[in-house]
Nucleic acid binder design. Sequence first.
DNA 1: TGTTAGCACTCATGCAGCGCGAGTGCTAAT
DNA 2: ATTAGCACTCGCGCTGCATGAGTGCTAACA
Lengths: 344, 344
Amino acid sequence: MLTERQLLILKVIIDDYIESAQPVGSRHISKRPDIAYSPATVRNEMADLEEMGYIEKTHTSSGRVPSEKGYRYYVDHMLTPRQLPKEDAVQLQSVFRDRMNETEEIIRRSAMMLSELTNYTSILLGPDVRKHTVRKFSIVPLTNSTAVAIIVTDSGHVENRVFPLPEGINPADIEKMVNILNDKLTGVALHELHRRLEQEAAVILRQHLDRYGDLVSTFRETLVSPLEEKVFYGGKLNILKQPDFHDLQKIRNLMDVIDETRHLPLILPVGNEGLHVTIGSENALTAMEDCSVITASYRVGEEQTGLIAIVGPKRMDYKRVVTLLDTLSGDLTRELTRLIRGGA
Amino acid sequence: MLTERQLLILKVIIDDYIESAQPVGSRHISKRPDIAYSPATVRNEMADLEEMGYIEKTHTSSGRVPSEKGYRYYVDHMLTPRQLPKEDAVQLQSVFRDRMNETEEIIRRSAMMLSELTNYTSILLGPDVRKHTVRKFSIVPLTNSTAVAIIVTDSGHVENRVFPLPEGINPADIEKMVNILNDKLTGVALHELHRRLEQEAAVILRQHLDRYGDLVSTFRETLVSPLEEKVFYGGKLNILKQPDFHDLQKIRNLMDVIDETRHLPLILPVGNEGLHVTIGSENALTAMEDCSVITASYRVGEEQTGLIAIVGPKRMDYKRVVTLLDTLSGDLTRELTRLIRGGA
DNA sequence: TGTTAGCACTCATGCAGCGCGAGTGCTAAT
DNA sequence: ATTAGCACTCGCGCTGCATGAGTGCTAACA
């Protein structure tokens, strides 16, 4: 168990190191106004802290640096949730100012704002589009052989995709199809669309359309394809700004990982509610072993959830980022829910 | 004027240096099968070439490196346009395979492909959306107070934007407005939309709508806003792969510049037809002074033009990139034009 | 007269040695 | 229990030095 004084010293070491990126020595600690002990005393405590694994030396006679265990202890036990400084709160609020009617736009802005405020990289997952429900279908012919299919969802999201028209199709058939689709499938969630199309709409479509097979098969493909969760980045390049990263090779690996959307599930605890901190080698990917990731979830309405994540060096300003994410997650939940509910 | 032999040596130096990134020495040149002279002779010629400013030394007794003047001469006089190697051609063609119906998707793919083939960064500007013409308007109400406005263009591009509905608006009025808009403004180019709305549609709208002012004013805003040219990047991180870039500070500046869409007009000769090569300090921005930019334009139909650009180190494989861009620009022009014409 | 061999010269690079200073661990005094 | 003192460690930056790649020049050669 850690004594009161050891706690104090550990906290000072971590706070100092987070700020300065320099190993912190006993003399330096002793000089701080909140420390009333001589360097020698501090050294003794530091030796103990090191023995217990909370801090490390970079070389035999260097100052101390927090270990991963140290950071872990810090975020688990020493992060009394604070109020966001007013300045940050104001900035953060600006995301929701102006006539912001679109979920995606708000999320995009949030990503920007987060990376600006923290100088780290932010990753925001939008609420799962597949849970949005169909508000309206329409099909707009472009040429003899192509048309664009449009799905508007209840959230105001618009999916659109050009698809080939079967040759010599009757324009009236297209209109019929759109009407039937709207009739039968409005209110259906996007991920159910395919199944429901088969189950319910198919019969009726077949009755009413001359060339049922051709038209529907080509149209259906457009429905199943993308519909992934949207990912929004902020400050991808901020990694370059961190003095912690100087090894070009490591930077490359890191960037590759972050950039590849398919790696995201590995570095983000997708689906987890609440606030999570992953430190250094706790990350699944070795490319991220010098990074920490802080995530928070938000909700939109009852069902949909999204994720906010900050990727930075292990020497990240945990206190600040945690408070920021906590606040933003609340704000997003509130504002986005208000939005789909159609409140003022 | 350069002698035959000086030309040969200059070419060898540049080609070798492009491949190896190492200063090339007289001995090395003399060993090549296409060089029949001793190192001493080569040295003499090199001294002349250096005097004329085509090559440089990195230090007193190093091999030679092409100067910017050297590269310039190389691209201006020594780039006999070649056929694309079959392997590359096949790869490039794959961009147009599969049912690719959407201009944007094709361009996105092209960007990817280019960066993959070259290991440099590619930037593609889509054809100016503002020149697309309206195929269809529609408005889909979402809640009591919001609706999404949708514009489909002749290219299959879909612009959509959520906008606030005036309180207590009559749904019939919305429908009326959409009908009038479609009636009056179909076929109008997006950049003319605002003006034409005022000139032609306004009068009629005013006659038919109870709450003309409210509805139109809030809807109009959604028309004027974005509609910029779309920018597609490929391999933004490829810069990190180039051995030429090792200075972290420079990399940061460079990335900043490339990332900022508003800097693009400065580094790309927007609007210029044909193929352009900008070498090192010929670039407008000092952050780019170690880079070369190769651009080519493409057309879609008669009016619209787009731009392909490759950003790489000065030590770029000009021959290959020029051929690639030349081919791709032709392919894009052909395929995209075919697309909007609705040919098979 | 153009080409080449030979040689002295230059300079980046890598390595060993060295002094400095920040910081530690230990011990003895308070 | 705390602290002053001191010897010790080790990273860092500096210097000096050997190495080798590459040059420029000169004189001999075809």
